[in-house]
Nucleic acid binder design. Structure first.
Lengths: 132, 132
DNA sequence: CCCGTTTGGTTGCATTTTGCAACCAACCGG
DNA sequence: CCGGTTGGTTGCAAAATGCAACCAAACGGG
């Protein structure tokens, strides 16, 4: 973590530095799906506990998650911040790609739908061209 | 790589298994930006050469990149497949998030524009709700 | 109030992944 | 034919990860 950024000028590289490891994105996926507690995350992802501790700290340190006190009692819970919620399109895009390309043609898999049960259309950048 | 998938049922997890490491997404970013050759990728990302070799193989093995013969001569080059190009929205989403949240407020950074120079609007899933 | 359980960790150690530098064979241009 | 570039490979050191055992502070029931 010493070199600060892999490539300080590229926004993609910075984002990948923050969430581009085996677990962070899955933690955020679960957070978006309602996970709040340490054991919740641990059970859903199957991540090692010490790594989970570290990831939760990293994500909180960078403002993607925040620790909130539970309504009753004082157990600490993690909640998505605005910045964290803002990663939603990334998760959706990853999910849609996975649905299209990471399963065998005959293999069953989920399809992303919204609250009303209709299928969410593919995310497409407004203009179909490259990165300046 | 033995356990096949981190979570076989989740498309997000599968995608992360394929491209969710420190380098793969940056390699794909550069491929989308025109990089084709081994040294091209190596120079742009700064990745260690042995790791680059492994990543290029992994990405080709999973059908995100393909090896093509150079027009003249027979040097091997890597090109994005359809599946690879289909990751474009992911890269765009990562980039947009980075532009919004990974820079200090006063810090200058790039803004994603299309071929005509107009700013690409934020990617937003059609309906604003969660994952079933 | 006391005891067993759950939660949210921490610690130490083994295994795996990365990174670095040196090396190499094939081709390329002149 | 000679030097440089390309696309790697190899060996070793350093860092990240995984696993299992351990722990203190709540809970929760009786």
């Amino acid at each position: 973590m010493a070199p600060a950024w892999t490539d300080p000028n590229c926004p993609v590289a910075r984002t990948v530095d923050l969430v581009g490891d085996r677990w962070s994105l899955l933690i955020l996926r679960d957070a978006m799906d309602g996970a709040r507690s340490f054991t919740d995350f641990q059970r859903r992802t199957g991540i090692a506990r010490n790594i989970l501790t570290e990831r939760l700290r990293k994500l909180t340190a960078h403002g993607l998650l925040a620790q909130v006190d539970a309504p009753s009692g004082r157990r600490r819970l993690y909640a998505l911040t605005e910045a964290g919620k803002d990663l939603f399109p990334v998760i959706v895009a990853l999910r849609q790609w996975g649905e299209r390309h990471a399963f065998d043609p005959d293999e069953p898999h989920s399809v992303l739908v919204d609250a009303t049960g209709t299928r969410v259309p593919a995310l497409i950048p407004a203009s179909p061209t490259g990165t300046p």
